[in-house]
Every structure is written in C-alpha cells, then in structure tokens.
C-alpha cells in the first residue's frame, strides 16, 4: 500500500523538480530535447568494446545535475529501477562470447566488456532522459515535440498517459486501503480477489478518466494542449546547443581518454 503512494509521490516529485528556476530549467525546451537526442545517438554510436570512449560522456549528466541543482538521490533511485532489466539483457553475454582477454592475470570472456558497455550505455541514456524530464517538465516537453511537428495525437497521447498514471494509482491506492483495512490478517491481495480487483480498477479508472475528460471539455478543451508559453530562443540557448554538440562531436572524433593517457605517459617518459 505504501509503495503505491510512494511511487505516486515519486512521479509528482519529477514535476516538482521541473519547476525549479535554474539556468538549465530556463533554457528553451526544444534545445534541451535536441541536446538529449544528440546525446542518446552519441551513446548508442560507440561500438560494444569501446567502453573507455564512453567515459567522457559522463560529464553530461554530471554537469546538468550540478547546473540544474538537482538532488542526486531521486534521479539515482529511478536509475536503479531499470537496472534489473538491463542486467537481465546483458548477463548472458559473458557466457556466450567465446573470445577472451587477460586482465591482471585473469582470463575473462569479452562478454564482460559488452555487458559493462550495455550497463554504462543504459545508465547514461536513462539518466539523460530523466534529467530532461526533471529540468523541463512534461508540459514544456510536449510543446517542444509539437515544435518538431510531431503529430498532435501522439503528443496528446503522451501527455494524457502521463497525467492518467497518477489517476490510476490514486484509485488503486484507495481500493487497496479499503481492502487492507477489512482484511487485517493477510498481506497483499488474496489470489481469489485478483480478478474482481483488477476489473474494478479498470472500471473505476474509466469512470474517473471520463470525469476528468469532461472537466477538460467543459473548459473548452478541443484536443490541443496549450501551455501558453511561447518562449523565444535566447543567446544562452544557442550557446548551450552549440557547446554540447561540439563536445559530442569531439568525443566522437577523438579518443579523449586515450589522448589524456598518452599525454601523461608521454610526460613521464
């Protein structure tokens, strides 16, 4: 029961974060969206053995978190939620890949490298998207998607799904509470009640969703979601965009960790 209200609070927490007014929050949503997309492409573009080349990209989340004054714990927690899936995808690599390499006297399957690469890549991509939501907010993000000429229907779908998640969870929480209070001797929901519970939840959510939708229609909602902001591009937006794109291009073209390495070893020689 508490876990549902916790996750409800968590979802809303991202919205709260998005309301801050730091340098990053004030940037044009479209710019942030483009930078995030560029970052995602960049992370995906590196081969599966090139983990060292991914390292400079860690700067991106670190810098955004610092500039946007975001708390690390909530972002990190959300990252952990996806990790089991990632591990599920990559864990068999060490067993299937035949090639080996030697590290500190141990002969290991190259599968460990690809596993690590999947791990890092997923961490980076999920973090960047979380940061995008936490610094932009769903409404403005939707506005940015509209600017990219993504069809209205898709954007609306995204926004309303996001909005209705909390509606669904609120209903579920109420039902769970009512259930738990009248069944003090058991934990969770008895299997014989699952059917009616799930059915009730669907019906109630339909009902609730319909009431919310009516309330929207009555206030003139016709399918277009207006956030009201017509933010203009500022110099800071352009600098932010160009700066990050430049950084991405440089990390793509040059192997920065290697360069730094040779620089140091060169100095020592």
């Amino acid at each position: 029961m508490s876990s549902i209200s916790n996750s409800l609070y968590n979802i809303e927490h991202l919205d709260d974060l998005a309301r801050k007014e730091t340098f990053v929050h004030k940037l044009h949503p479209l710019v942030k969206l483009i930078v995030t997309l560029a970052f995602l492409t960049m992370v995906a573009s590196f081969g599966r053995y090139e983990i060292e080349r991914l390292l400079p990209l860690f700067l991106y989340p670190v810098i955004i978190i610092t500039l946007a004054e975001l708390p690390i714990a909530p972002i990190f927690k959300r990252l952990l939620i996806v990790e089991p899936f990632i591990i599920g995808i990559g864990i068999l690599n060490p067993f299937f890949e035949k090639k080996t390499f030697v590290l500190a006297g141990l002969t290991l399957s190259t599968g460990w490298i690809t596993f690590l690469s999947i791990f890092i890549k997923s961490g980076l991509t999920v973090a960047s998207v979380l940061l995008l939501v936490a610094t932009t907010g769903m409404d403005r993000l939707a506005a940015a998607l509209r600017m990219l000429r993504i069809p209205r229907l898709f954007v609306l779908q995204l926004l309303l799904t996001y909005r209705y998640i909390s509606v669904l969870m609120e209903e579920a929480e109420r039902m769970l509470r009512a259930y738990a209070l009248r069944s003090p001797l058991q934990k969770g929901i008895h299997i014989s009640d699952w059917g009616s519970f799930a059915g009730q939840l669907v019906l109630r959510t339909f009902d609730r969703a319909q009431r919310v939708y009516r309330a929207m229609c009555v206030r003139g909602f016709t399918g277009e979601y207006n956030t009201g902001e017509h933010i203009k591009f500022k110099m800071a937006d352009i600098l932010y965009l160009v700066g990050w794109l430049l950084f991405f291009v440089v990390t793509r073209m040059y192997n920065i960790p290697m360069l730094i390495g040779t620089l140091f070893t060169g100095v020592i020689k």
Partner: peptide, 10 residues
Amino acid sequence: DQLFMTTVYD
C-alpha cells in the same frame, strides 16, 4: 476531477 495541471496557475 477538475484540477489536473501541475500548478494552480496553469
């Protein structure tokens, strides 16, 4: 049912 945006203002 009526309040669904992220802030009262919106």
